[in-house]
């Protein structure tokens, strides 16, 4: 179990704000932090990784206390078994892909582990390239491999897929799920993308102005409903045919044409996110998803 409680006064873009979070992260699963920019998500990451000191706080990871301001305990980033994938990946431009991973591995790198990661992340042909010569998706894979070589007890991903185009994004989401299971990773993920959170995370914390306003499964947080025997799929509205009461929705790179009731079609604009909820009894369409 990972327990995180932090309290810090911030000078944000919108003036003063108190970051006050208290939550638990189940091990071996992905927990998402969701909220607008400036809500304090990245600051929370900086505190958890040890880059920033909160006024009050307690962080316990798998029984090990990383931070407890009441007992004046604060482990340095080096002593925390943590890895952080930055939004811009922060790959070192002066090192090749392989050397980026080796540098993160430390003084006596486990050669087999490095080799295994390079193969798992499909980086073998790219291992001698400099990061700036790689595409966004490839850079993201290097950043993840470099994080995993550190064998973290907690992996922080700050909008890891935000800079990628849709197709690669979907592929990397699948890949991320695969490695999360394979290496039993405990992951904290910052994301703005509801569909992505829904796909990846078991648990989501909705953060507004430094506070957790909602937490639960993605379905609970985003629709207020508890899912039982249902499957929820998000899609983007591409076009609306008001004569036939039909909409075209992009779901997982596929176009889906839906017949929809007359009153519901009035709620929808092109570009809106909708949620399709398939249950064993019927199929519901939710509009107005933010």
């Amino acid at each position: 179990m990972i327990e995180i409680a932090i309290h810090k006064a911030l000078n944000g873009q919108k003036g003063k704000m108190i970051l006050d979070l208290d939550f638990k992260v189940e091990p071996n699963q992905i927990t998402a932090l969701y909220g607008p920019s400036g809500a304090g998500k990245t600051t929370a990451f900086r505190i958890v990784s040890g880059l920033l000191m909160p006024e009050k706080g307690r962080i316990v990871v798998n029984g090990e206390t990383w931070l407890d301001t009441s007992r004046k305990i604060s482990l340095s980033p080096k002593e925390r078994k943590i890895a952080y994938v930055f939004q811009d990946y922060a790959l070192f431009p002066n090192m090749s892909v392989e050397n980026n991973i080796l540098f993160a591995a430390g003084k006596n790198p486990d050669k087999n582990k490095v080799k295994e990661l390079i193969e798992t992340f499909h980086l073998y042909d790219l291992r001698n390239q400099k990061p700036q010569n790689l595409s966004g998706g490839q850079q993201q894979r290097v950043a993840l491999a470099r994080a995993l070589i550190q064998e973290p007890n907690l992996l922080l991903l700050d909008e890891p897929l935000a800079a990628l185009d849709n197709e690669i994004r979907v592929r990397l989401q699948d890949f991320l799920l695969e490695i999360q299971v394979r290496y039993s990773l405990s992951i904290l993920l910052v994301s703005h993308d509801i569909a992505e959170i829904h796909k990846l995370a078991k648990h989501v914390l909705h953060i507004l102005e430094g506070n957790i306003v909602k937490s639960g499964s993605p379905v609970e947080v985003f629709t207020g409903k508890v899912s039982e025997n249902t499957l929820n799929v998000y899609g983007k509205t591409l076009s609306i045919d008001r004569l036939k009461n039909r909409i075209t929705v992009l779901v997982n790179q596929e176009k889906l044409i839906l017949d929809i009731s007359e009153e519901k079609i009035l709620d929808i604009k092109v570009g809106d996110l909708i949620m399709l909820s398939f249950s064993t009894e019927n199929t519901e369409i939710y509009t107005g998803i933010k």
């Binding site: 900086r46 340095s76 943590i82 890895a83 952080y84 811009d88 922060a90 430390g106 550190q150």
Partner: peptide, 12 residues
């Protein structure tokens, strides 16, 4: 970018 320095620090 400050992330380069921070990434290295978090690596220990």
């Amino acid at each position: 970018p400050s992330s380069l320095r921070e990434a290295s620090i978090v690596m220990g």
